[in-house]
Structures are given as structure tokens and as C-alpha cells.
């Protein structure tokens, strides 16, 4: 009896501690949400308030109009969607080659793909910018997404996953006259749901959150992406209009949070097996 009571007190204490820490961790987001609903005079009142007096939507409307948020979000959505699908498609194909085939230079080619993990954007950004510009793709969707379409991580993780599917399956498929492409599309891919979902989530977020490359390659307002919108809020809002800046920031982060919370399980799995990020 006494032990279980001590246990209970322990549990309550742990919960309280974890709740307090959770509050601190989430504080930057929670306060941003709170401020985004406050009118200017409440934001600059002293002491600063934690909760809006009433829900004021003006900041959201102003932020939306100031930086053409509809266009920024649409561009980001398109770019992230294309990158997500492209990386998965290319990664499934190359992963399959390394998991189910024996061929000359297999090890060398596999190493060549993995080695690209060591080439982050910053070690190639200057010539990449010149190259993509010379192709005439500066300030286009193609120029924005092409450098992100293939990835070592997706190839590697698809290979790892395909290797877990029993070899006997392939043997019996071969005996039934099922060709390599039919085997991939009708047997391997349907068995890969969770892995594909995890990689899709991670790849979507990587592109949604990308900043340096869009900043360099996109220069017209109608091509810019949501992350650039955050910077635009700071440069074009009148002297530190925090309500507006936080409202805009919240709009940019909502898709991130939605995707993360919907696919959290897959996301964590995707990260846990991922090495370097782009």
C-alpha cells in the first residue's frame, strides 16, 4: 500500500516536471501564437501579456497581404511536393538496383551515391548558382527543385528496406515469369508503405524548410517560397510590427506542424535512420 502511494506521488511529480519543461520548450511557439492575435497597443503595453484580450485577426490579414502569402505558400507547396515525389521515385529505383541486382561496379556506384552526403549545398553553391543560371533556370520552379531531386539517404534507406524483404519472394516471382519492373511495382512497393511514408514526410519537410538555395536562385516576388516570406516580414513590416511578423511566421510554420503531427511516427523513424541532411 505504502509503496503504491509513493509511486503515485512520484508519477504526479514527474508529470508536473515534464509539463513545465514542455511549456518551456513550446514557449517560443505559444507566445508567437498569442502575440499574433494581439493588436499593436496590447503588444506594446507593459507588462507584456501572455494571452490576447480578444482574438484580433488583423495581423493575419495584414501579413497575408504584405508578402503575398498565398503565392509564397503555393510555391513552397509545389516545390516540396515535387521534391518529395521525385526523391521517392528516384530513390526507389536506385535502391532497388542495389538491393536486388548484382552488377559490375556495384560497390563503386553505391559509394559514389553515398559520398554525395558529404557535399552539402554550401560547398557547391557558387558554381551551382552559375550552372543553373547558365541553363536559363534561374527564378524557375525547375531551377529550384532540380538540385534536390536525387538523394543518397532515400536511396540508402530504400535499399535497406528492400533487403528486409525475403529473397524467396523474388525467386518465386521469377519462376512465375514476373519481370523485374513488375516485381518492383506489384510486390516490393506495396510492401513498403511505412518506409515510403517516412521518407515522404522527411523529404517534404526538408524542401519546405530549405532557405539558402531559394534565396539565391529565386529573385522575383511571385517565385519566392514561404521561408523567404519570413525574411520579407522583417524587411517590409513597418518598424517591428511584432503582431504582423509573428502572424506571418505562424502561417509559414503551420504546414510544417501539420505534416509533422500527422506523420510523427514515420518522421521520427525517418530521422532516426537518416545520417546527414541536405
Amino acid at each position: 500500500m505504502r509503496k503504491s502511494r509513493k509511486d503515485l506521488i512520484n508519477k504526479i511529480f514527474t508529470h508536473l516536471l515534464l509539463m513545465a519543461i514542455s511549456f518551456v520548450v513550446l514557449m517560443p511557439i505559444l507566445l508567437a501564437i498569442s502575440v499574433s492575435f494581439q493588436p499593436r497597443n496590447q503588444i506594446f503595453s507593459y507588462p507584456p501579456s501572455l494571452i490576447p484580450n480578444r482574438f484580433y485577426f488583423g495581423n493575419y490579414i495584414n501579413a497575408w497581404n504584405l508578402v503575398n502569402m498565398d503565392r509564397l505558400l503555393l510555391n513552397s507547396l509545389l516545390a516540396s511536393g515535387i521534391v518529395m515525389i521525385g526523391k521517392l521515385a528516384l530513390g526507389v529505383l536506385s535502391g532497388y538496383a542495389f538491393s536486388h541486382f548484382e552488377f559490375k561496379y556495384k560497390k563503386t556506384l553505391f559509394f559514389a551515391i553515398l559520398f554525395t552526403l558529404m557535399l552539402p549545398m554550401q560547398v557547391r553553391v557558387v558554381p551551382l548558382f552559375e550552372f543553373v543560371s547558365n541553363l536559363g533556370l534561374a527564378n524557375t520552379y525547375s531551377g529550384l527543385v532540380l538540385p534536390f531531386l536525387a538523394s543518397a539517404t532515400t536511396t540508402f534507406l530504400m535499399r535497406q528496406h528492400f533487403l528486409t524483404i525475403p529473397k524467396s519472394l523474388m525467386e518465386s516471382a521469377q519462376l512465375d515469369g514476373c519481370g523485374p519492373f513488375r516485381f518492383l511495382f506489384q510486390i516490393l512497393i506495396p510492401l513498403s508503405g511505412p518506409t515510403l511514408a517516412g521518407l515522404a514526410t522527411v523529404n517534404f519537410l526538408v524542401m519546405w524548410n530549405a532557405y539558402l538555395w531559394p534565396l539565391i536562385i529565386l529573385n522575383s516576388d511571385e517565385m519566392k517560397v514561404a521561408q523567404q516570406g519570413v525574411k520579407m516580414l522583417f524587411t517590409s513590416a513597418s518598424e517591428r510590427d511584432w503582431g504582423l511578423i509573428m502572424a506571418g511566421t505562424i502561417m509559414v510554420v503551420i504546414p510544417t506542424l501539420v505534416v509533422f503531427l500527422l506523420a510523427q511516427k514515420f518522421f521520427v523513424k525517418g530521422i532516426a535512420t537518416q545520417g546527414l541532411k541536405e
Partner: peptide, 12 residues
């Protein structure tokens, strides 16, 4: 909750 900041972009 502890993972959430990691999903957020550096700019945000």
C-alpha cells in the same frame, strides 16, 4: 513536444 522544434525551419 520535445521533437517539434526539430521539424521547424531555421528561419522560423
Amino acid at each position: 513536444i520535445f521533437f517539434i522544434p526539430y521539424a521547424i525551419s531555421p528561419t522560423v
